[in-house]
Amino acid sequence: MTFPVQRNEFSKDEENNAHFLFRFYIYQKERFPIFGHGLLVAAFSFSAVSYSRICRGSTGFVDWKIFATGIFTTVTLFFLVRIFDEFKDAEDDAKYRKTLPVPRGLVSFRELMIMGVIVTVAQLLLNLFFFPKMLLIYAVIIGYLLLMGKEFFISDWLKKHQFWYITSHMFIIPLIDIYASGLDWLLANAKAPAGLFFFFAVSYMNGIVLEIGRKIRTPEKEFEGVLTYTSMLGINKAIWLWVFILIITLVLSIAASVFAGYGKTAFIVLGTIFVLCVIPAFLFLEKRTEKLSKIIEYASAFWTLAMYLTLGGGPMISKLLFE
């Protein structure tokens, strides 16, 4: 396997010639902010475990060694998704997105591959040591990730059918969710609670909320070769699609709340979150500014985090503190 050296007019010698740790710091800041993504994935994992335990009527939380290992695995699994995407999108990035770290030579494909191997070995060893039972789910996730990396061997078709491209790739999220929740029910030798189906569905739809929300742009921010939903559908249709996905996710989250036995308070919280998130969308329809498009992106992240905390994290924290 050859790894061509990436350089272009946006390359900066002072960055590209720096120590790897400094270059990786810049890379993660631009492509996988460890603090921001880590916080979101930690909430995702904590909520999945919490929701499972609440649905099963279990008291307390899982052992923190188990949870810490699980968080490391889930965060680094999403990091592997990012690395796979760098290889998968290499041609388009080099042609249309030259300011990104890889096309401008900040990190090389060889370095990315080495990081991916190190992360995978660490995941395998930790899971093998702490809970070998989880390796089957882990293997399914890695298998699906490999298929994603090859675009399921139908790359050209998927590029022409964006709906199927997005819906097929988003399955990686509930798969990782199954792993996270399995830290409870699987390790406890229990049957997975029925309510998890709706929790996984919320996770899947949250991924689509994030995907659409970060690709809503003003006309002056559209660029050739950079796929956005506003360029594909137009601003009005893109906004209404995002709102429609929020509504579906809201309905699924209410169903998940019912299975967990939450009361009216949860429904009020979920409804309030929905209203807060759709406000910038309607404002964007009236005044199409770059600032409002960024607020929609932030609202997507807030929505996702709020969904997880409302369905699992918040109720579990309340139980741990007050019961």
Results as ranks from 00 to 15, higher is better:
V269R: 01
T167A: 12
F199T: 00
N16S: 11
V117F: 12
F131L: 07
F20T: 13
V140A: 07
E224W: 10
T265H: 09
S253D: 06
L135S: 07
E211C: 02
S11R: 03
E91Q: 13
T230V: 08
M115L: 13
T76D: 00
R31V: 03
G263E: 10
I268T: 13
N206S: 03
V121N: 04
L106A: 01
G182L: 05
I26C: 14
G149D: 13
L100Q: 06
D177R: 02
I216K: 00
L252P: 06
A190W: 00
G313L: 08
G234R: 03
F163D: 08
A306P: 06
A188L: 05
L39E: 10
T74H: 01
S108I: 00
I118A: 05
F267V: 09
P280H: 07
T99S: 13
L283K: 05
W164D: 05
G57M: 01
N16K: 08
M232L: 11
A306Y: 07
L187H: 07
N17Q: 14
L39C: 15
F3P: 15
E297P: 08
R56T: 02
F284L: 11
F267H: 12
F3E: 14
I34Q: 15
A281P: 03
V5W: 11
D92P: 09
P101Q: 04
L21Q: 06
M148A: 14
S300A: 12
Q123D: 03
S168F: 04
I176N: 07
L125C: 05
K221Y: 11
V121A: 06
V251N: 06
R82I: 00
L292F: 08
Y51P: 01
Y298A: 10
Q123N: 08
I254V: 13
A68M: 02
F79Y: 11
P315K: 06
R53Y: 00
P219K: 01
T228Q: 05
S52Q: 06
I71R: 00
L106V: 01
I172R: 03
I254N: 11
E211A: 03
A122Q: 02
A306S: 11
G149C: 09
P193S: 02
L100D: 01
Y51W: 10
L175Y: 04
E211S: 03
I248E: 12
S45T: 15
A266W: 08
L241F: 12
L233V: 09
L305M: 12
Q162G: 13
I295S: 08
A194C: 13
S11N: 11
T69G: 07
M113E: 15
L128H: 10
A48F: 14
L145Q: 10
F130H: 09
D177P: 07
K150L: 15
D177H: 02
Y308G: 15
V275E: 08
Y165S: 07
L309T: 13
A42F: 12
